[in-house]
Amino acid sequence: MHFMLWSTPPRATFHLDMTAEEKGIMHQHIAYWTEQQNQGIALVFGPVQKPDDPHGLAVIEAENADQVTKLIAEDPAVAAGLMTTDFYPMMAVVRK
């Protein structure tokens, strides 16, 4: 199954004014999702610069929604309370 993850930062200006502590957590967040990508779970992920609504986006492949919930809970940015992440099942995925 494929899922779209939508991560919301604590404020719209987050990408511009992160504290040193927040930057450290975001480095852990990127390392975490890079490892998921290396394992074939995260197909693509990254920040989206939508005006007035920046967010993170990922497309992942997982066995079920319970696995997605676990992956999100183990994300360092979510665990630290820095981001919230919602997910939605995808109806179809067309690969290149």
Rank of each mutant, 00 (worst) to 15 (best):
M1F: 06
M1K: 05
H2G: 03
H2M: 05
M4I: 03
W6Y: 12
S7T: 13
T8V: 12
T8M: 08
T8E: 06
P9L: 02
P10Q: 04
R11K: 05
R11D: 02
R11A: 04
R11T: 03
A12C: 10
T13G: 03
T13Q: 06
H15G: 13
H15W: 12
L16A: 12
D17G: 07
M18W: 12
T19W: 07
T19S: 14
A20I: 15
A20L: 14
A20W: 08
A20V: 14
E21I: 15
E21Q: 14
E22Y: 07
K23P: 10
K23I: 13
G24A: 14
G24D: 09
G24M: 12
I25A: 11
H27T: 15
H27V: 14
Q28V: 15
Q28P: 13
Q28L: 12
I30Q: 15
A31L: 13
A31H: 08
A31G: 07
Y32F: 08
W33C: 09
T34L: 13
T34E: 13
T34N: 14
E35P: 08
Q36I: 10
Q36S: 10
Q37F: 09
Q39D: 14
G40I: 11
G40H: 07
I41D: 05
A42W: 06
A42R: 06
L43K: 09
L43V: 12
L43Y: 10
V44K: 12
F45M: 14
F45K: 11
F45D: 11
G46V: 11
G46N: 13
P47L: 09
P47V: 13
V48M: 09
Q49S: 14
K50G: 11
K50P: 10
D53L: 15
P54W: 05
P54T: 05
P54A: 04
P54R: 00
P54I: 06
H55R: 11
H55S: 06
H55I: 05
G56F: 03
G56P: 03
L57S: 14
A58K: 05
A58N: 00
A58E: 02
V59W: 03
I60H: 05
E61F: 06
A62W: 01
E63Y: 04
E63H: 07
E63A: 15
N64V: 07
A65T: 00
A65Y: 01
A65K: 00
D66P: 04
Q67Y: 05
V68T: 03
V68D: 04
V68I: 00
V68Y: 01
T69M: 03
T69Q: 06
K70S: 08
K70V: 04
I72S: 00
A73Y: 04
A73H: 00
E74N: 02
E74I: 07
P76R: 02
P76L: 03
G81D: 03
G81Y: 02
G81R: 01
M83N: 01
T84M: 00
D86P: 01
D86A: 04
Y88R: 06
Y88V: 00
M90F: 02
M90C: 09
M90A: 06
M90I: 01
M90G: 02
M91R: 08
M91P: 05
M91W: 06
M91I: 11
A92K: 08
V93R: 13
V94R: 09
V94K: 13
V94I: 12
R95N: 15
K96L: 10
K96G: 15
